Amino acid sequence: MKYDFDTVIERRQTGSSKWDVLASRFGRDDVLPMWVADMDFVSPPCVQEALIQRAKHGVYGYTVRQDDYFSSIQQWMSTRHGWDIEKDWIASATGVVPALTVIVQAFTNPGDGILIQPPVYYPFKRVITSWGRKAIENPLVEVNGRYEIDFADLEEKAKLAKVMFLCSPHNPVGRVWTEEELVRVGEFCLRHQVLVVADEIHADLVYKGYKHTPFASISPKFAANSITCAAPSKTFNLAGLKTAYVISPNAAIKERYESMLAKASMSEVNPLGVAAMVAAYKQGGPWLNELLEYLDGNLMYLNKFIEEQIPEIRVVQPEGTYLVWLDCRGLNLESRALDQFLVHEAGLALDEGHLFGSEGVGYQRINIGCPRSLLEAGLNCLRDAIERTVRTVSE
Score class of each variant (00 low, 15 high):
169 P>N: 07
174 G>S: 10
146 R>G: 13
120 V>Y: 08
136 I>Y: 03
168 S>D: 12
124 F>T: 00
154 L>T: 06
141 V>F: 02
169 P>Y: 04
152 A>N: 14
154 L>H: 04
128 I>N: 03
120 V>M: 09
134 K>H: 13
160 L>R: 06
153 D>C: 13
102 V>E: 07
159 K>C: 10
141 V>G: 03
161 A>E: 04
116 I>N: 06
110 P>L: 01
162 K>F: 02
135 A>H: 08
135 A>K: 06
180 E>M: 10
177 W>A: 02
111 G>N: 01
132 G>V: 08
144 N>E: 14
174 G>N: 10
116 I>M: 06
129 T>V: 11
128 I>F: 03
106 A>W: 04
146 R>M: 14
134 K>Y: 11
158 A>H: 02
156 E>D: 10
152 A>E: 15
174 G>A: 09
126 R>F: 04
104 V>D: 12
144 N>V: 10
106 A>S: 01
153 D>K: 15
180 E>D: 14
102 V>F: 03
138 N>K: 04
115 L>Q: 00
125 K>Y: 10
169 P>E: 02
128 I>M: 03
108 T>C: 11
160 L>I: 08
177 W>V: 08
155 E>Y: 01
127 V>S: 04
168 S>I: 06
132 G>S: 09
115 L>V: 07
170 H>I: 08
162 K>P: 04
102 V>C: 12
141 V>C: 05
105 Q>M: 13
175 R>C: 12
171 N>T: 15
159 K>G: 10
147 Y>F: 13
166 L>F: 13
119 P>K: 03
133 R>D: 01
164 M>C: 12
129 T>E: 15
164 M>S: 11
153 D>V: 12
166 L>H: 11
